[in-house]
Design a binder for these strands. Structure first.
Length: 417
RNA sequence: GAGCUCGUAGCUCAGUUGGUUAGAGUGCCAGGUUGUGGCCCUGGAGGUCGGGGGUUCAAAUCCCCUCGGGCUCCCCA
């Protein structure tokens, strides 16, 4: 097929009307359920200062080192947000949201940008929804955040998921563990896969994630991070697990679960789906007790998660779950002749002001074509009007699903709704 | 950054060892029913076969280059 002259950029997709109905359904559901959990929505700009993202996520993370869309204009450096935890924390600090008292329970829905090679479940502009709880170090917050995440997927009907959790402790515990891990791997450095060799200095924890066959023997015998946690970390982790059990949420402990952003501390978790292909993480998150301070706020513990909306929609597709309704309209006015067309146009506002969705032909076509259009638009009713109806002041009111008609005044028709 | 793979009507795809004006289904438009949709019948519009170059009497088909998409590695939602 001939390619059009103008197209979206690589990895950026248009969401067309039939798809938008699913998105609206999903967004409505998220907002409604978030309110049930007493979370409030926050909306931040699409662009942030580059420095916020670099400092927040970590200079050496993949996201920052090779996946951000950044540009400068005059003195200012802009970056298209690749995630929303750091921006939400920025807003929290900038607007002193901590002063509102208690813990801040925020949720968001919106587009994110990462300059990666697209593939299934991965785009350059994609959408996430997520929660952040700022100001609580209590494991109840961890449990509620996870509970909300699971709740959304259950509500939609995506149930064959696996919740993986781990604790990566505080920075001191993690540094001790990193050294132990490197000491374990070093004697066999030459036998590691190429990617793992690269990770060895930069981010040894990531080697635990390796899917390379040659790495497996060393991963299996590697020390486990949970053995390096201090008492506070262990206590917190145990409480999280205890609360999840209390909530009836099953989970799988994965001592090799490591996440991509530097800001994580303590609890880390991911929700995995077998229906997604290579990119199998539906959602992920964790605790980030040091980020608020890192960004310039008072020391403030926090926990949150982010979920990929495209991935959620892919899972629905795979599972045959249909989100939202087909398009439809309450009334389609079918007209014959100029006088009737004029009358029809004048009735549309009356129908709409009564809460009835209504439309008519915009193309000046035959009655048959109008009926066909009414059918295509899934009109529940058609009002058919020609010279006879105008003369008598009674109009043909056709139930399109039952194929039954009656002759009614316009007021009677309004009374039918 | 790397690998694999695919580009033929709006969509899903046929197209036999290169051989006339490139097909089907579906969708779209119209007619059959000069006032009635869905089913059915008939007709129509719609394609520079992604683009450029080459080989050939002849290219959707073979060769080269190029553009675009998809999947995968890395990493992540």
């Amino acid at each position: 097929m001939a390619q059009s002259k103008y197209t979206t950029h690589l990895g950026m997709v248009d969401i067309l009307p039939d798809e938008v109905r699913k998105w609206q359904y999903l967004e409505n559901l998220i907002r409604q359920e978030a309110h049930k959990f007493n979370f409030e929505e926050i909306r931040t700009p699409i662009m942030e200062q580059t420095e916020l993202i670099v400092r927040g996520l970590g200079q050496l993370t993949d996201i920052v080192s090779k996946e951000i869309f950044a540009f400068s204009r005059g003195e200012d450096n802009y970056v298209l947000r690749p995630e929303l935890t750091a921006p939400v924390v920025r807003a929290y600090v900038e607007h002193h949201l901590g002063q509102r008292g208690g813990s801040q329970k925020l949720f968001y829905i919106g587009p994110m940008f990462r300059a990666e090679r697209p593939q299934k479940g991965r785009q350059r502009q994609f959408h996430q929804f997520g929660l952040e709880v700022l100001g609580s170090s209590d494991a109840v917050a961890d449990a509620e955040v996870i509970a909300f995440m699971i709740h959304i997927y259950n509500k939609i009907g995506i149930k064959n998921t696996t919740l993986k959790i781990n604790s990566i402790g505080d920075p001191e515990s993690r540094d001790k563990y990193k050294e132990a891990l490197k000491a374990h791997l070093k004697p066999n450095f030459d036998k590691l896969s190429d990617v793992s060799k690269k990770r060895f200095e930069k981010n040894p924890l990531r080697i635990l994630d390796s899917k390379e066959e040659e790495d497996q023997p060393f991963i299996e015998t590697a020390p486990v991070i949970t053995d390096f946690l201090n008492d506070d970390s262990v206590n917190h982790y145990n409480k999280v697990k205890d609360y999840l059990s209390e909530l009836g949420i099953s989970f799988e402990e994965d001592p090799y679960l490591v996440r991509g952003m530097d800001y994580y501390t303590q609890t880390a978790f991911e929700l995995i789906s077998p229906d997604l292909g290579a990119q199998d993480a539906l959602a992920g998150g964790g605790r980030y007790d040091l980020l608020v301070e890192e960004i310039g706020g008072q020391p403030t513990p926090a926990v949150g998660f982010a979920a990929g909306m495209e991935r959620l929609l892919i899972a629905c597709e795979e599972l045959g779950i249909v989100l939202g309704d087909e398009k439809s309209v309450d009334v389609y006015i079918v007209t014959l002749g100029d006088a009737a067309r004029k009358w029809g146009l004048a009735q549309l506002p009356k129908l709409r002001s009564n809460g009835i969705s209504a439309t008519m032909d915009y193309m000046g076509r035959s009655m048959k074509a109008q009926m066909k259009d009414a059918n295509r638009e899934n009109a529940r009713f058609a009002i058919i009007v020609g010279e006879n109806e105008l003369k008598e002041g009674k109009f043909t009111f056709r139930n399109m699903t039952e194929s039954e008609e009656e002759s009614l005044t316009f007021d009677d028709i309004l009374g039918k709704f």
